[in-house]
């Protein structure tokens, strides 16, 4: 079942709306949802102060879709901690989109801001536009970044994407900012555009892997080149991206050889960076 939220105003002060999850909506009346609290600066306001709501509400979060009909780039915490269901944002989304989520799906048609998917543990976030910094990252202080799930960005991603990542998958079809996958200790990042400086800095290992299809701006001197080969596992992963996650670009690289770099030697890590040889 689907409920539609039409933005009423463009807020000057960003609205913190962690209530925007199928988990919270499920089983409520529309009028109750309208009264859910959102935080604007130091005030508590109502969801209906910012959105017109219509549609139907399901009993279970898994059956609930929330569609935001317009721009929500000043709305923070959309899908925060959600476990099931689906959120569709027709425009952009504000900070902390889907942070701490553990299941379900979020699709943003516009751009997303910083900390999208931060510390998420499951589910799928698709951002059709660009995203800000610290995509799928750990919040400052935490050493447990993303621990599962998948984030797909069709556009570009900012800096320190996947910092302290432990598990899960990040796919960026455009370019990615510097220090992607820093401190990574598990998980995989696929970068179909160009990767910047510091990719994989201080990555530890534990199966962590960064795949760069269009080269790297300047690879750290502490990543040790080993070989060029067509590892079979890459085919599996690419097929998974292509078939399950519907990433068409992955299909172009099934037969591509990759250069294998291991590092970061600065921390005695054995993470891997693969750079496509095209």
């Amino acid at each position: 079942m689907e409920v539609f939220l039409k933005p009423k105003v463009k807020p000057l002060i960003p609205v913190e709306a962690e209530v925007l999850t199928p988990d919270r909506f499920a089983g409520m009346k529309l009028s109750e949802i309208e009264g859910l609290p959102v935080y604007v600066g130091n005030r508590v306001e109502k969801l209906s102060d910012y959105f017109e709501l219509e549609g139907s509400i399901s009993e279970k979060p898994a059956d609930q879709q929330i569609t935001i009909l317009g721009d929500a780039s000043r709305i923070k915490y959309i899908g925060y901690g959600m476990t099931a269901g689906r959120i569709l944002v027709e425009g952009g989304a504000g900070m902390h989109l889907g942070s701490h989520m553990s299941g379900g799906e979020i699709v943003v048609k516009g751009n997303a801001s910083d900390w999208a998917g931060a510390e998420m543990s499951g589910g799928l976030i698709s951002i059709l536009g660009n995203t800000g910094d610290l995509l799928g990252s750990a919040y400052r202080g935490s050493r447990e970044g993303m621990t599962g799930g998948c984030i797909i960005v069709k556009g570009n991603a900012g800096i320190e994407s996947g910092i302290f990542m432990r598990r899960g998958t990040i796919v960026v079809e455009g370019e990615i900012g510097s220090f992607a996958g820093a401190h990574m200790n598990g998980g995989a990042i696929f970068i179909f555009g160009k990767a910047s400086r510091g990719v994989g800095a201080e990555m530890r290992g534990n199966g962590s892997m960064i795949v760069c299809f269009k080269g790297v701006d300047s690879l750290l001197p502490t990543f040790i080149y080993n070989t060029i080969y067509k590892p079979n596992f890459m085919r599996i992963y690419l097929k998974f991206l292509f078939n399950t996650l519907k990433i068409d670009k992955a299909g172009e690289y099934f037969e591509t050889p990759f250069k294998r770099y291991v590092g970061d030697a600065a921390v005695g890590g054995d993470g891997e960076i693969f750079i496509a040889e095209t």
Binding site: G122, G148, G149, R167, G168, F233, Y237
Partner: peptide
């Protein structure tokens, strides 16, 4: 190298390289 795939998306897959 331990390879993990699809954590938190669908049935998780683990491989060794």
């Amino acid at each position: 190298v331990k390879m993990r795939m699809s954590d938190g998306i669908c049935e998780r897959k683990r491989f060794w390289r």
